[in-house]
Amino acid sequence: VTVDIKGMEYHFDNPEEAKKFAERMAKELGGELKVENGTLKVE
């Protein structure tokens, strides 16, 4: 699973970990979490 945090890509084997990480980063950065082509994106 790929997580894109404002252009920086992180790769996770575990989808649950990827989702938790993306949600935490969205909250910390005040960004919006989206799913695009199987990639979790925070913008």
Rank of each mutant, 00 (worst) to 15 (best):
K19T: 10
E32W: 15
E23W: 03
A18Y: 02
E32G: 06
K20C: 10
K20E: 13
E16Y: 09
E16M: 10
A26H: 06
F12G: 00
L33G: 03
M25A: 09
A26K: 04
K6F: 15
V3C: 07
A26D: 05
F21P: 00
E32H: 14
V1R: 03
F12Y: 02
V42G: 03
E9Q: 15
R24Y: 14
L40T: 05
L33Y: 08
E28Q: 07
G31W: 13
A18H: 00
A26L: 09
G31T: 07
P15N: 08
E36F: 11
F12I: 01
L40H: 05
E9P: 07
K34R: 13
K27S: 11
Y10L: 03
E16Q: 09
E43F: 14
R24I: 12
V42Q: 03
K41Y: 11
M25Q: 06
E23M: 07
E28P: 02
L29P: 03
M8D: 07
F21Q: 01
V42S: 04
L40S: 03
R24A: 15
E9S: 13
T2I: 14
N37W: 05
N37T: 05
L33M: 10
H11C: 11
K41C: 06
E32I: 15
L33R: 01
A26M: 07
G31V: 11
V3N: 01
Y10G: 00
A22W: 06
K27L: 14
N37S: 07
L40W: 14
G38E: 05
F21D: 01
G31E: 06
V42C: 06
I5K: 01
E32L: 13
K34P: 03
V1F: 13
T2Y: 07
K20H: 08
G31N: 04
A22G: 04
T2K: 11
K6W: 14
L33I: 14
E17Q: 08
G38R: 01
M8K: 14
L40Q: 03
E23D: 10
E28Y: 09
K34W: 11
I5W: 08
P15E: 12
G38L: 05
F12N: 00
L40I: 15
V3L: 04
D13E: 11
E43A: 10
V3Y: 01
K6R: 12
E17Y: 04
L29S: 06
A18T: 00
V1L: 12
H11G: 02
E16W: 11
A18W: 02
V35I: 13
D13I: 10
D4M: 15
D13L: 10
F21S: 00
K34L: 11
K27F: 13
E32N: 13
E36A: 10
N37M: 08
K27D: 11
E16N: 07
V35K: 07
N37I: 05
V1A: 08
K27V: 11
K41H: 09
Y10M: 03
A22M: 06
H11L: 08
A22L: 07
A22Q: 02
Y10C: 10
E28T: 05
E32K: 13
N37C: 08
P15V: 13
G31A: 13
L29T: 08
K27Q: 13
H11M: 08
G30V: 05
N37F: 08
E32Y: 15
E43P: 05
N37E: 09
E9T: 14
E28R: 06
E16V: 09
K41Q: 06
E9G: 06
L29Q: 06
V42I: 12
E43V: 15
G30C: 11
M25I: 10
G30L: 07
F12C: 06
P15R: 09
I5N: 01
P15K: 08
I5Y: 08
E43W: 14
A18K: 00
L29D: 04
T39Q: 11
E9M: 15
T2P: 02
E32C: 08
N37G: 11
K19Q: 13
V3R: 00
K20V: 10
E16T: 10
K20Q: 12
M8V: 14
A22R: 02
F12V: 00
V3P: 01
F21T: 00
L33K: 02
V1H: 10
V42Y: 04
T39H: 12
D4L: 15
E9H: 14
K41P: 04
F12T: 00
K6T: 08
N14M: 03
M25F: 05
A26N: 05
D13H: 09
K27W: 13
D13T: 12
N14P: 00
K34T: 11
E36M: 10
K27Y: 13
E32S: 14
E43Y: 15
E17N: 05
I5M: 03
L40R: 00
